[in-house]
Nucleic acid binder design. Structure first.
Length: 270
DNA sequence: TAAGGCCTGCTC
DNA sequence: GAGCAGGCCTTA
């Protein structure tokens, strides 16, 4: 969503001098080198790989990861600094363009960051080079094959593992497992072919619905224009602890699986 | 495979 | 005041 919004706004733009307000918002190279190298480079394309944003430059590559609370907002030339969706307190990095417009990176929790790489192999975050196939391109037979390679894994932690497949986070995983009737702690080896195929199709549907809704704004998420998503209005289990299961009416439960809050209906998910 | 750490602000 | 968060890395 963020990539789709940003691409037409910033393709072809040339970077000016960045302004770093929080040291660790730039992960590589060190701040002074980043600030010296970026100006003058222009954006030839904006891509997404898993949860990374990838800005192709005329020389090198700018990688960004928003983690949990990061927002990357496009500011047109002369735009007001006040943005209702992101307090100035959370502004971590300004990436101005030569034309006076800019990208502003806000991140309350300071988890997100940027990498400026001369080539993709150099100093990229460890997870980036290990990303599994992205859900935008993953076909059913590949998914079934990958599942067969991990029979002992529990399904929810496996789906969240970006080395297995890239792009699923906690919300979309819980929603997909509920809609597939699969318990998050099931071992992959206990899923029959029909269940695995149903899971694949359900994940595709949930992701498509999420994208069509402009994402999920439970609290922080905003797209590149600061707009909220609406998929939260269609959530069946995530964040609905105690509410009635839409299928059987029993209360939705919240547990912890692999350290992540996990929402499920133990009656409907086996 | 799991726990802890990074961080801050909000809800319970 | 504790618990929690659309993530991921390091360490055990």
């Amino acid at each position: 969503m963020i990539r789709r919004e940003l691409a037409p706004l910033i393709c072809g733009k040339r970077f000016a001098e960045p302004v770093l307000l929080y040291e660790r918002a730039v992960r590589y190279p060190e701040a002074a080198v980043f600030s010296r190298r970026l100006p003058g480079r222009s954006i030839s394309g904006v891509e997404r790989q898993g949860k990374y944003l990838l800005f192709r430059l005329d020389r090198g590559l700018l990688l960004g990861h928003l983690r949990m609370t990061g927002k990357l907002l496009y500011c047109p030339p002369g735009a007001s600094l006040d943005n209702p969706t992101a307090p100035q307190r959370d502004l971590r990095l300004k990436l101005p363009f030569a034309g006076g417009d800019a990208l502003h990176f806000y991140d309350m929790r300071k988890f997100g960051g940027f990498w400026l790489l001369e080539n993709p192999e150099e100093h990229c975050p460890a997870g980036f080079s290990l990303l599994g196939p992205d859900w935008e391109e993953l076909d059913e037979s590949t998914f079934l094959t990958l599942l067969r390679e991990r029979p002992r894994a529990r399904i929810k932690p496996l789906l969240l593992d970006q080395r297995f497949t890239a792009g699923l986070g906690n919300i979309y995983t819980d929603e997909s497992l509920f809609r597939s009737g699969i318990h998050p702690c099931r071992r992959v080896s206990t899923l029959d072919r029909a269940e695995s195929a149903r899971l694949y199709r359900t994940i595709r549907e949930v992701l498509a619905r999420g994208i069509a809704c402009g994402g999920t704004t439970t609290r922080d998420y905003r797209d590149a224009r600061g707009a909220a998503g609406s998929f939260q209005n269609f959530l069946t289990v995530y964040g609905r602890k105690g509410a009635p299961c839409p299928r059987c009416g029993r209360p939705i439960e919240r547990t912890v699986v692999a350290g992540r809050g996990t929402h499920l209906c133990p009656h409907c998910q086996r």
